[in-house]
Design a protein around this nucleic acid. Structure first.
Lengths: 218, 218
DNA sequence: ATTCTCTGTTAAATGTTTGTTAAATTGCCG
DNA sequence: CGGCAATTTAACAAACATTTAACAGAGAAT
């Protein structure tokens, strides 16, 4: 994925990076429940993982625990958030205001985590006001201008499959470096762009493989 | 994930299973474009994978290719669909008819792939008709009865986080063996239940790790 | 002080991907 | 029509990556 020619710093496996947000979430919940310290063993129980894996994962980034005691949750949380880069806000734009796009724009889970959708684009804008709450709604042609003007770094793609790749290309051309793609395609992007796909159908299709096996056993 | 004590059959890695639906999708597209045969090399190009990996993946399940020629797309597709268990229809129910739930129910991507939402449940059903198209809309209390009556095997969870685990428990109690969970939690389920989580925030949070690095380079 | 707990680290085990080679198939050329 | 070169899989082996286990040492508790 990313090249790291620095011989000092060890490359962190991508799987590990993908687990960090899960730690962040659980630790946040624990903190809300006024738990202050947790051991890798307890955390493993909670997340159904081995304590060894948790300790190994964290050790890629530093020494956050205290022997004989465990991890201070507040401290670990702060560190993890900084490591992930979620200790600050990120500006995103949404492309596509169909049913899916509108659900995304109304999804209340993004902004508490610092992901703010500041602009939305669609082919047919006539049906909308020029602002949806604090979000400006514009024609596709405005992507270039707005992304640069507002210094947006994340693009959320919710257009039909046949338009998705060209939308992605446009976003990338205009400096977007992270794309959350909801279109059911295998998208291309340059290596310096981080792509994440949300595709429930693929999830279901790999799910049935195991369900089928269950049925055969019964 | 699944126990397989059969000493003859080799355990297929889960990563491999998760790639199969991607193959299915690309192969379907190729078939629509009237391509009949494809080599692992060409497929690898298309999917940005090594040909070796594609061949290895497929070889877990059988010998589908012809040396000197490649894979017959129609044949491979039929085989893969059978392997994944997507050569037949699966009945699903949706729990939660908030904005997210309504977007899911209207998502046109499920039924062409054989996943049919046949029932939907919500705490407050008063706002809906008893049917939404062909889908029966019922109170949560009806989950048990309806899941059994309609022989539903997949549950799609789109309720608020604080209700998600108890909904999952209910679904599992009533014989659901596959759960597609949209709630941002780390859900528990017995080992014989297949769980897939759709969580855009986690995706974004692991994305920023790499975007942050990019910025530091610039 | 001594015992118990729990991390960070190293080593071993396990899992996954890639490279290589033999064998099968195709298409071409004489 | 037969042989030869080009292709491409399937299988095996090697390289690489990730997870788990084990343990020394630091800290806490008694």
């Amino acid at each position: 994925m990313q090249n790291n020619n620095n011989p000092i710093q060890i490359e962190v496996p991508e799987v590990v990076v993908q687990r960090l947000p899960i730690y962040v979430r659980v630790l946040s919940q624990l903190l809300e429940s006024n738990v202050e310290v947790i051991s890798s063993h307890q955390l493993g129980e909670l997340l159904q993982m081995t304590p060894a894996q948790i300790r190994k994962d964290l050790s890629y980034f530093g020494r956050f625990g205290k022997q004989g005691r465990g991890y201070n949750i507040q401290f670990l949380l702060d560190e993890l958030r900084q490591i992930l880069g979620i200790d600050r806000a990120w500006k995103a734009c949404l492309v596509g205001l169909g049913r899916l796009g509108r659900a995304i724009i109304n999804y209340p889970g993004f902004s508490p985590e610092g992901f703010e959708i500041v602009a939305a684009f669609d082919n047919d804008v006539s049906q909308y006001d020029s602002r949806l709450g604090t979000i400006s709604v514009q024609a596709m042609e405005e992507i270039a201008r707005t992304v640069k003007a507002k210094n947006i770094s994340i693009g959320i793609v919710a257009v039909p499959s046949n338009q998705a790749q060209s939308v992605i290309d446009t976003l990338v051309e205009n400096g977007i470096t992270g794309i959350l793609n909801y279109a059911p395609i295998a998208p291309f992007a340059p290596a310096n762009v981080v792509m994440r796909n949300i595709d429930p159908v693929l999830s279901l299709q790999s799910m049935t493989f195991y369900m089928k096996e269950n049925e055969e056993i019964n």
